[in-house]
Amino acid sequence: TLKVHYKYTVVMKTQPGLPYSQVRDMVSKKLELRLEHTKLSYRPRDSNELVPLSEDSMKDAWGQVKNYCLTLWCE
Rank of each mutant, 00 (worst) to 15 (best):
V23T: 00
P44V: 13
Y68N: 15
K39L: 12
W62K: 03
T71C: 09
M58S: 00
V65Q: 13
Y6S: 08
P44Q: 11
K59Q: 14
L18C: 05
V11H: 02
K30Q: 11
K66F: 07
S47D: 07
Q22K: 14
M26S: 02
S54E: 06
W73F: 08
D60I: 04
R34T: 13
D46V: 02
L2D: 08
L40C: 02
Q64Y: 04
D46F: 11
L2S: 04
N67D: 14
Y42W: 14
D46M: 10
K29L: 06
K29V: 06
S41V: 00
T14N: 07
R34A: 13
K59W: 04
Q15D: 13
K30E: 11
V4T: 04
L33A: 00
S57I: 07
K30N: 03
E55R: 02
L53G: 02
T38C: 14
K59A: 15
L35V: 15
Y42L: 01
V4P: 00
Y20H: 04
P16C: 14
R45V: 12
T38H: 03
T14M: 10
V11D: 07
L50Q: 03
Q22I: 13
E32F: 02
S21T: 11
S54R: 05
R34K: 14
L72V: 07
R43M: 14
E55K: 00
N48P: 11
K66D: 15
H5T: 02
D25G: 09
P19R: 08
K39I: 13
K66I: 04
K59V: 12
R45Y: 10
N67G: 12
L70F: 14
P52S: 06
Q64W: 05
E49T: 12
S47L: 02
C74I: 01
K39Y: 14
L50W: 10
V11W: 07
K66L: 05
S28Q: 05
D56M: 09
S57R: 11
V4A: 00
E75D: 10
M26Q: 11
S21V: 12
D56W: 03
L40Y: 06
V23G: 02
W62D: 01
Q22S: 10
L33K: 01
K13S: 12
S21Y: 12
L50R: 08
W62T: 04
V27M: 07
Y68E: 15
P44F: 06
K30A: 13
K29M: 10
H5N: 07
P52D: 06
T71L: 03
D60Q: 11
K66Q: 15
V27N: 09
H5V: 09
M26N: 08
S28A: 15
L50P: 09
H37N: 09
K29P: 03
P52N: 06
Q15Y: 13
L40F: 08
D25W: 06
K66T: 12
D46E: 12
Y68D: 15
S21R: 12
L31M: 06
S57M: 08
T71H: 13
S57P: 06
S47G: 12
P19V: 00
T9E: 04
M26P: 06
N48Y: 10
K30D: 04
Q15R: 11
W73G: 05
P44W: 05
T14I: 14
E49C: 13
K66V: 12
L53C: 02
V51C: 01
T9L: 04
T38F: 12
V23I: 14
V4E: 01
V10I: 10
V23S: 04
C74E: 01
L33M: 08
P52L: 09
P19G: 10
S28Y: 04
V65S: 14
L33H: 03
E49G: 09
K3H: 00
V51H: 05
E55P: 10
K3I: 14
M58R: 00
S28L: 01
V51I: 12
V11K: 09
L35W: 08
M26A: 11
N67V: 00
K59M: 12
L50T: 01
Y8M: 08
E32T: 03
P19A: 11
E36V: 00
D60H: 11
G63T: 08
Y68C: 15
Q22W: 03
M58G: 02
L72A: 01
T1S: 07
Y6Q: 07
L33Q: 02
H37E: 15
R43A: 11
H5S: 03
V23K: 03
D46G: 15
E55C: 05
R45C: 14
L31R: 01
S21F: 12
Q15T: 11
S54A: 06
Q64A: 12
M58P: 00
R45N: 10
S21E: 13
G63W: 06
C74G: 03
A61F: 09
S47A: 09
T1N: 09
P44A: 13
G63N: 12
V23E: 02
K39R: 12
S41W: 15
V4R: 04
W62C: 11
L40T: 04
K3A: 03
C69I: 09
L33N: 06
V27Q: 09
S47M: 06
L33Y: 00
Y20L: 05
E49D: 12
C69L: 08
E36N: 02
D25R: 10
C74F: 00
K39H: 13
K3S: 00
H5K: 09
R45I: 13
V4S: 01
R34L: 07
Y20T: 00
V27H: 03
K30R: 14
Y6P: 08
L40N: 06
P16V: 13
E36K: 05
R43Q: 11
T1I: 08
E55S: 04
S28G: 00
